[in-house]
Write a protein that binds this DNA or RNA. Sequence first.
DNA 1: GTTAGTGCAAACCTTTTGCACCAGG
DNA 2: CCTGGTGCAAAAGGTTTGCACTAAC
Lengths: 150, 150
Amino acid sequence: MDQERRTLHELGLAITAPRVSVLRSLRRTSRPRSAAEIHADVRADGSGAGLTTVYRTLTALVEADLVHAFDRHGEAVYRLCGERRHQHLVCRSCGLVVETVLDLDEVLRHHATADGFHIEEVHGVCASCWGEDAQDRQRPRLARSPQELK
Amino acid sequence: MDQERRTLHELGLAITAPRVSVLRSLRRTSRPRSAAEIHADVRADGSGAGLTTVYRTLTALVEADLVHAFDRHGEAVYRLCGERRHQHLVCRSCGLVVETVLDLDEVLRHHATADGFHIEEVHGVCASCWGEDAQDRQRPRLARSPQELK
DNA sequence: GTTAGTGCAAACCTTTTGCACCAGG
DNA sequence: CCTGGTGCAAAAGGTTTGCACTAAC
């Protein structure tokens, strides 16, 4: 029994071709991808799974805490997550995600207005995107409006 | 010339009834609101402005750095922002937003993998939402799947 | 008068749902 | 077998766009 099947079995989910294929696709890269991207991957994998099934599988995996769903410019992107207690640094320019074990909660705990705030994701701009645009040093070249975000 | 008109003038935007009304609505509360909510507010204000115009106005204000757009469960919500350099703490359960001047960047700067990451938003769960669900102390009662997020 | 702004309706895109069919345990 | 899983097509919801009309400067 391979890794994907074992995972599904441990979660109490039925072992089906579409699910195995989605898991395999997720494992292929740590870059967060949309349901449509994963679906394309699954199709390329030979499985004739429908987009609906990909959505339902991703939902099940998110509920099982195996996958984390990020919101990228209005569309959901998914990523297999290893560790239990961790936080994500998400670059809003390139979409890079770094898992961190930094205890940022500890930092906030000493800040009055933020007392007890439980950090899950930190959104911002990574170093390389920040420096990328030499023309505009003050601020990275990023989508700034809802229009542009699409 | 009132505040809204002055603002529009400073931004080099034409002063029109819909825009004044959108600005007035934004000023009314610091809670982030969707375009639809702001549109309802604008309508109640007597302006017959259309939803399209509300979107276009919000886009212009975001581009001008006067308004910050958050992503709340797949829909955009908007909020007037005062300070230039600040970060937001966003509760994913109740949508509460707190502006903070904490220099979280400084904290991250000493963490190798996160070197140079420029923080803009911190997503998580606020203290009151965290404690709300007595049945499940380990984790707040939150939407966990894309399905549930709607 | 010219250009920027507006309203409406239709298009768009991602995600969800209804329902009949199929297959895993 | 029986329940959970699947596919398709249609619906839903938020957002954008095309185009003709209007109003600001």
